[in-house]
Design a protein around this nucleic acid. Structure first.
Lengths: 204, 204
DNA sequence: GGGCGACCTATGCTTTTGGATAGGCGGGGT
DNA sequence: ACCCCGCCTATCCAAAAGCATAGGTCGCCC
């Protein structure tokens, strides 16, 4: 099993290699930026798995991923990152990455993840992928008052102002006011867009 | 490493055990329903991983999962199923399951998944979790004509009828018509609800 | 060739939204 | 005490959305 690791932090490369070599029978290669990685892939044939650091010279977001995938005959290429948020992880997977590894992962889990991806499976730590969603919820939710959230919930269920007014025991005009401030705070043009933004943020 | 497998299909139990014993050094136990599984857990102490079939006598949806988690000192308990849809998988993970294994998984991947979960990670096959979304997309999308999808896209971006009309080079009244038929087909009361339904279905 | 469904347009009408402007009430901070 | 802010209400108006009804083209299938 041939694995290529590309990361500009020498420490990360070395520990990763040391650990994988000790615990598995994998054949490892490493380099410190994308261009060298691409060269190595061309020279030493397709790897069973390529690990790319997300913030590494030459990566340019996810275009580096696509280049590596092309170079490696569409064999598994995964992204590894210490800082990238969950949204990047999702994008990476959508772009055909074999997985996404946050550097916060335990070493044992990492080995298993590597085995997984080399076997052709797609891997992403469920914890990481779901945890951060809650953060976003709060980030958006804490900008809104309790009332506004209540009204926003109504919007997301497609209720009219009148219906929301009945449910909240307020006047219809008041709901209009809240809808307007919601649109301002969420930078939405109208109620529908506000509802979509709330939905996108994982709220409700 | 101690693993307990509970499945009412003897064939599944046997092949699983045979495979895991041959490929790993795990100590395996097996039983054919939830009650026996709970007894085994109590008698033979906490397991490093418990695999529960989702449709097995005594499971009663996910309450069986919770019982097993309690019995096993909150050590990893995972759900394995051949038929359960992705929604169940999500619920299971939310309820504290260590993972979700569709029976369609390859044997090699399965071993890795077992290792993973025994190590305390949460596992779910990304392919499975995202694939099914596409099915739903189509189920909804194929009820709609091309035009209607085009209009629905506009709704989801919070556009007004007029804006959609400009983009599609149609009259505003025509957009109104499509919105109406969309609401009928999607069983929505208004444009906002239609947009939310589309979003929920994973469309756009 | 007739029927049917997707698609487009039109008119006329009511309801809902969205926006502006203005004011009252209560709590928290300076 | 004063001001600001969240919250609620009010009135007026214009725009957008929703609904009904009616009619036209086109392609497909029996």
């Amino acid at each position: 099993m041939k694995i290529l690791i590309a990361d500009d932090h020498e420490l990360v490369r070395d520990t990763l290699i040391a650990f994988l070599e000790r615990e598995t029978d994998m054949h490892l290669a490493a380099c410190e930026d994308l261009n060298r990685a691409l060269e190595t892939i061309k020279k030493e044939g397709p790897f069973d798995l390529v690990l790319l650091d997300y913030s590494m010279p030459g990566m340019d977001g996810l275009t580096g991923l696509e280049k590596a995938l092309a170079a490696n005959d569409n064999q598994p290429v995964a992204i590894i990152s210490g800082t990238a948020p969950r949204a990047i992880a999702q994008q990476a997977l959508d772009s055909g990455a074999a997985g996404f590894l946050p550097k916060t992962m335990g070493a044992k889990s990492l080995i298993n993840a590597v085995r997984f991806m080399a076997a052709g499976e797609v891997f992403a730590p469920v914890k990481f992928m779901t945890e951060v969603i809650e953060e976003e919820e709060n980030a958006l939710a804490k900008k809104l008052t309790a009332r506004e959230l209540q009204v926003l919930d109504g919007l997301c269920r497609g209720q009219s102002n009148k219906e929301i007014a009945r449910e909240t025991d307020l006047q219809e005009v008041t709901i209009k006011l809240h809808v307007k401030t919601l649109c301002r705070k969420l930078e939405a043009k109208n109620r529908t867009m506000a509802a979509m933004i709330a939905k996108d943020a994982g709220l409700f």
